[in-house]
Deep mutational scan, measured.
Amino acid sequence: QKTCLICGDEASGCHYGALTCGSCKVFFKRAAEGKQKYLCASRNDCTIDKFRRKNCPSCRLRKCYEAGMTLGARKL
């Protein structure tokens, strides 16, 4: 079983350049394409896991970029 690099849930494949679950794939697409700016209410070090991935979109998006996700990457 492969694990999502963002939240640790079961990965569905390589999306936008990183091994992710469906939830993180859709989140990244919407967040990266959108005009909304996300700000962390804490210290930009929130725990992003399967159960808390929706708590801080700022840290989740940062983790996506750190994992190498880009909109230009093709699905592998």
Rank of each mutant, 00 (worst) to 15 (best):
C46F: 00
R52Y: 09
K37Y: 06
K50V: 10
R30L: 15
Y38D: 11
L71Q: 11
A31E: 09
D45Y: 06
S23W: 08
I6C: 04
P57C: 15
D49V: 03
L71C: 11
Q36S: 09
C64K: 01
G13K: 05
C46D: 03
Q1R: 05
K25Q: 13
F27V: 01
Y65T: 04
H15Q: 06
G72E: 15
D49W: 03
P57H: 14
G17W: 02
G72P: 09
T3D: 06
K50S: 08
L71D: 06
Y65P: 00
A32L: 07
K25N: 14
K37F: 04
Q36I: 06
R74T: 15
C24S: 00
N55M: 15
K50Y: 08
S23L: 04
T20E: 01
Q36K: 13
C64A: 04
D9Y: 02
V26M: 14
Y16I: 01
V26T: 13
G17V: 01
L39F: 11
K25T: 13
T20W: 02
A41C: 06
T20Q: 01
F27W: 03
A18H: 01
C24N: 00
A31I: 03
R30F: 14
G22K: 08
R30W: 08
T47S: 12
A73N: 11
Q1I: 15
C40V: 02
A31Y: 15
C59Y: 02
Y38F: 09
C4T: 00
Q1Y: 15
T47L: 11
H15N: 07
C24L: 01
R52T: 15
R30K: 15
A32S: 11
D49A: 04
Y65V: 14
C56R: 00
Y38H: 05
K50E: 08
I48W: 04
Y16R: 02
R74H: 12
G17S: 04
A32G: 13
C40Y: 00
K29G: 11
F27H: 01
V26E: 14
L5P: 04
R52H: 10
C21I: 01
I6E: 02
C14M: 09
L5C: 10
Q1S: 11
L5G: 06
L19I: 12
C64Q: 02
Q36G: 13
C64T: 02
T47Y: 10
G17E: 05
L5Q: 08
K35M: 14
A73H: 15
A73M: 06
H15R: 05
L39A: 11
R74G: 14
A18F: 02
C24F: 00
L5E: 10
N55L: 12
L71N: 08
R74K: 05
L71T: 15
A32W: 09
T3F: 10
C4E: 02
Q1E: 15
K25S: 14
A32N: 11
C7S: 02
N44R: 05
L19E: 14
K37R: 11
I6F: 01
C56K: 01
T3W: 08
L71A: 07
D9L: 02
P57A: 13
C64S: 01
L39M: 14
C40H: 01
G8W: 03
N55E: 03
C7T: 01
S23I: 01
G8D: 14
N44K: 06
S12N: 15
Q36Y: 06
G17A: 03
I6R: 03
E33H: 07
Y16N: 04
P57M: 09
I48M: 07
G17Q: 04
T20P: 02
Y38L: 11
G34D: 04
Y38T: 06
R52W: 04
K35N: 09
G13V: 10
L19K: 12
V26P: 01
A18E: 02
C56P: 01
G17D: 03
A41F: 08
N44L: 05
Q1L: 12
R74F: 07
Q36F: 07
F27N: 01
F27T: 00
D9K: 03
K25L: 09
A73S: 13
G72I: 15
K50D: 03
N44M: 09
P57D: 15
Q36M: 09
G22T: 10
C4F: 00
E33L: 06
K37A: 14
K35T: 14
Q36R: 07
S58C: 15
A41Y: 14
C7A: 03
D49Y: 02
C46H: 04
V26R: 14
G8R: 03
I48V: 12
Q1W: 12
P57G: 15
C24V: 00
C21A: 02
T47E: 11
R52F: 07
A32F: 06
G22M: 07
H15W: 15
D49N: 06
L39V: 14
V26D: 14
L19S: 08
C56A: 03
C7P: 02
G8T: 04
R74A: 08
C56Y: 02
Q1M: 13
S12I: 09
D9G: 06
N44W: 04
R52G: 13
Q1T: 15
K37L: 08
G13N: 06
G22C: 10
C14Q: 08
H15G: 07
R74W: 06
V26I: 14
C24H: 01
G68S: 06
E33Q: 14
K25P: 04
L19M: 12
G13M: 07
S12W: 06
A32K: 06
K29R: 10
R30T: 13
G22H: 07
N55S: 06
D45P: 05
G72A: 13
Q36L: 10
N55Q: 10
R30I: 10
R52K: 12
A31V: 08
C40W: 00
S58K: 08
G13W: 02
T70I: 04
C46Y: 00
L5H: 07
S12T: 07
A41T: 11
R52E: 13
C4L: 01
N55H: 13
V26C: 13
Q1C: 12
I48Q: 06
I6V: 05
E33T: 11
G13F: 05
Y38K: 09
R30H: 15
L19P: 08
A32Y: 07
S58W: 03
T47A: 13
C14V: 05
K50N: 15
K29W: 14
I48S: 05
L71H: 07
K29M: 05
K35H: 11
Y65Q: 12
A32I: 13
P57R: 09
A32C: 12
C14T: 15
P57Q: 09
A18C: 09
V26N: 15
A31G: 09
G22E: 15
N44I: 03
G72W: 10
L39D: 10
S23A: 07
C40I: 00
K63R: 09
C46R: 01
S58N: 06
T3Y: 13
N44S: 10
L71S: 11
F27A: 02
L5D: 10
C7W: 01
G13T: 11
K63F: 04
A73K: 06
G8K: 08
S58Y: 06
S58M: 14
A31S: 12
R52L: 11
S23R: 05
V26W: 06
T47D: 12
Q36P: 13
G17T: 03
G22W: 12
C64N: 03
G8S: 07
K35F: 08
R74S: 12
A18S: 07
C40R: 01
R30A: 09
N44A: 10
K35P: 15
T20N: 03
K37S: 09
C56D: 02
H15P: 05
N44C: 03
C4D: 03
C21V: 01
K63V: 07
C14L: 13
I48L: 06
L19C: 06
I48E: 04
C46L: 01
R52D: 14
K29V: 05
F27I: 02
P57E: 14
L39E: 14
C64L: 02
I48N: 06
T20L: 07
